[in-house]
């Protein structure tokens, strides 16, 4: 389980590298790079910092991963967030969460 950085989207702002609780990301040639993909905890802090959706989260095959990715977008309404699971054949599943609503369980 780790993250994948889309180099075409990454603008090299460094926000992901600054927030990573494991100091795992660095900016090389104006792009974010993960030093040790196997050292990612899966906290998704970097996804939440990225304003251009360049960071995608995935599960390693050793823990059941099937090649889908998870992305995160903070809403323009400053209140909702959108999580998107995209399967390898590009099927999307979207979950919208209201940040002002508590968990039910």
């Amino acid at each position: 389980m780790s993250i994948f950085i889309d180099r075409n989207k990454c603008v090299g702002c460094g926000k992901c590298a600054d927030v990573c609780p494991g100091n795992l990301l660095k900016i090389t040639d104006h792009k974010a790079v993960i030093r040790h993909p196997e050292d990612c905890w899966g906290c998704t802090s970097c996804l939440k910092e990225c304003k251009v959706e360049a960071v995608k989260f995935f599960l390693g095959a050793d823990i059941g991963g099937r090649g889908s990715t998870l992305t995160y977008t903070y809403g323009d309404d400053n209140r909702t967030v959108t999580w998107k699971v995209i399967s390898p054949d590009k099927v999307e599943r979207v979950i919208v969460i209201d940040t002002q609503e508590s968990n039910k369980y």
Binding site: M1, G42, T44, F57, F58, L59, I63, G64, G65, R66, S68, L70, W83, V85, S87, R93, I95, I97, N103, K104, Y105
Partner: peptide, 22 residues
């Protein structure tokens, strides 16, 4: 309830929701 659990885990341990959905 299942839908709510997907959200609950995204707010805490997103890998579990990804695993379920994937």
């Amino acid at each position: 309830q299942e839908e709510e659990l997907y959200k609950a885990y995204l707010n805490m341990a997103p890998s579990q929701t990804l695993k379920w959905l994937e």
